[in-house]
Design a protein around this nucleic acid. Sequence first.
DNA 1: TAGATTGTTAATCGATTAACAATC
DNA 2: TAGATTGTTAATCGATTAACAATC
Lengths: 200, 200
Amino acid sequence: MVNQKSLKRFLQYRLSLIKFQRLGFEKVFSYNLGKDVGVTAEQVRKDFSMFGLKGSKRGGYDIKYLLKTIDEIFKRNGERQVIIIGMGNIGQALCNYQGFKENNIIIVAGFDLDPAKYSKKYAIPVHSTDKMEEVIKKNSIRTAIIAVPEFAGQEVCDQLVSLGIKGILNFSPVNLKVPEDIVVNYVNLRNELESLFYYT
Amino acid sequence: MVNQKSLKRFLQYRLSLIKFQRLGFEKVFSYNLGKDVGVTAEQVRKDFSMFGLKGSKRGGYDIKYLLKTIDEIFKRNGERQVIIIGMGNIGQALCNYQGFKENNIIIVAGFDLDPAKYSKKYAIPVHSTDKMEEVIKKNSIRTAIIAVPEFAGQEVCDQLVSLGIKGILNFSPVNLKVPEDIVVNYVNLRNELESLFYYT
DNA sequence: TAGATTGTTAATCGATTAACAATC
DNA sequence: TAGATTGTTAATCGATTAACAATC
């Protein structure tokens, strides 16, 4: 399986490439990108070669070509759909997050156990978790965000996997057990902040 | 400097220890903790020994003692104060985040360039960035959250460092250049989600 | 061409895991 | 005591970096 870290670097390369393009550049060298993103030039070349991105031994890399290929890697040309399970604090914030909308990531629906949340007051429709299967099948969803409390994390994860979800962004503070073809990215906001108090 | 990854594991050990305690246990072995948190028993023992946490060669580790020591590492006994720079979508969500409040992390104030945000409509007071110095000095703040757009990330970071901030939680998609005694934790929600579409 | 940069193999580095002596 | 677990040193592993031949 592909290196998750390098995938995330590609998204940073992309931002950097757009910057260079705006400045009028058409080509970049590995050390230009590396410096801007904060990695070595070797890392950039290694990442590119792993994904088959080719440069020219004199002229460096063509920005347009790189951007086009990176866009393909992340399916940026189509609409990218995702669902959220758990409409608490984090779930609600994410469904309003501009950073997703601006990058044609569509949050199709949210799911929650609490019927009080099925009203129309959110930016996305919110359903009972019973309807997960229906929504996933109808839209061929492959990607989901788990934003439920600790106790429900693994159970929700198991459901999602059984419904064909391949990639999970997990905000619950649980180490999820998943089959090896499923990818989980962990975000634990509390730990990221709290660990800094060590230095206080 | 201390390993950031191991610091974050300690916070997971803590959650796990609390679970064991609720179940009536007073002692745990390294393999109990490891299994629950999703790391090896060797990792647990290594982490503990790096921070000087001692167990008994027969009875394992004392839960109360571990929790007490971990609480000290993260200054959990006092009030832990932090500020947010950038009251956009992410900043607003964070200042309502229960996960912080429940763990005596206090967001003292938010800062933003937009005067329209200085009103009283948020859970925390929001000021002009001009007032950062005053607030940081008065409260002896050492920890800050950067939630500004890309273009402002580095500038805000430089300001914070010059005002004595030691730990930064950075939500802006920028590789921050900081002196080596400053610790930056990166959270890039968009990258974490978008990288999953590779598997779609 | 000469110089510069890519692409890839080898070396390094850091973190994780294995092994095992110490010992409760 | 015998058995089990810690604490730590050595081995492994994976990812990053260095080196350099290929070549534009």
